[in-house]
């Protein structure tokens, strides 16, 4: 798999595997690479099988990605810009449509779902965006409530109680009535996290949640994410450039480059003793 930068890789998009067979193989392959403490008999919550993504029919951004995520596992995805990390993440909740391959959430294949089922699926996959994407016409409280009332069909009172609880959890209980424009970037991102968590999804997807923030605001957001990782029991897939965070919090670190998963493993191994030359170079550049 090792190759030099700039070397073009002719990947023939493989025929999708049978879902069960693929799952079996992935299961055997990925298991030892994480610090996650398995429960006996549990199934992976996210399985990505031979995922390929091509933009405009020419630009291939994902090449044969295979990844399995276990319930309550925290996976950090690292890699240089343009390596396809975000695209992979966006494929998981179908913000991007995979060109080829399988994605299974809780053993259910999600490619080719009808619209209504896609909406149902996304309720289970919370997403936090790089640019927050709060709804500017709603207050912080409204942002956290709207998914609960409009999608989950909760009553206003129930939703508000939940929203206040989640705002408190991210340390913004006192900012409930503020509009997004009146909050700092870090506060906005914390509201966005509260918005995602309030839906009680099975999986939380973070798409470079701190990349758009001024350095002094990053820490507050990471604190919130760390708390979630250690205490909520939620499955998290975090695309990030925060090496310290990944080393401290992740059960497993995945390193991607040029649309390929180059290396994955427990943080200590990947950071301190990378098997792959590119990983080493990248980590060297960063540190």
């Amino acid at each position: 798999m090792a190759r030099k930068r700039g070397q073009t890789l002719q990947v023939k998009v493989p025929a999708p595997l049978d879902a069960n067979e693929a799952a079996q193989r992935a299961f055997e392959h990925d298991r030892p690479l994480t610090t996650h403490n398995f429960v006996e008999g549990e199934h992976p919550i996210v399985r990505i099988e031979h995922l390929n993504k091509t933009f405009d029919g020419t630009t291939q951004v994902l090449r044969d990605i295979n990844l399995t995520v276990w319930p309550a596992e925290v996976v950090c995805v690292l890699g240089p810009s343009g390596s396809g990390k975000s695209t992979m993440l966006r494929c998981i909740n179908l913000l991007e449509t995979p060109t080829a391959g399988h994605i299974l959430i809780e053993d259910q294949p999600i490619t080719g779902l009808a619209k209504a089922e896609v909406n149902k699926l996304r309720q289970n996959l919370g997403m936090v965006f790089q640019s927050f994407n709060l709804f500017p016409h709603l207050t912080a409280l409204g942002n956290v409530m709207i998914g609960q009332t409009k999608v989950l069909g909760k009553s206003k009172e129930e939703a508000e109680a939940e929203a206040r609880k989640q705002l408190e959890a991210v340390g913004l209980a006192d900012r409930a009535d503020f509009k997004p424009a009146q909050l700092s970037g870090g506060q906005q991102q914390r509201v966005a996290i509260a918005r995602a968590v309030a839906m009680h999804p099975d999986v939380l997807l973070f798409d470079e949640p701190t990349s758009a923030l001024d350095p002094e605001l990053v820490r507050g957001v990471l604190d919130v994410m760390r708390d979630l990782a250690k205490n909520s029991g939620m499955t998290m897939i975090v695309v990030t450039h925060e090496m310290g965070f990944a080393r401290e919090v992740a059960d497993r670190v995945v390193f991607m480059e040029d649309g390929v998963v180059v290396e994955q493993g427990v943080p200590a191994q990947v950071f301190d003793n990378p098997k792959n030359q590119r990983t080493a170079e990248f980590l060297g550049d960063i540190q």
């Binding site: 909740n93 913000l95 909406n119 996304r122 309720q123 640019s131 994407n133 709804f135 409009k150």
Partner: peptide, 11 residues
């Protein structure tokens, strides 16, 4: 991003 945020909530 607004559409994506709404979609990610399942709307």
């Amino acid at each position: 991003g607004q559409y994506e945020a709404a979609a990610s909530l399942g709307m």
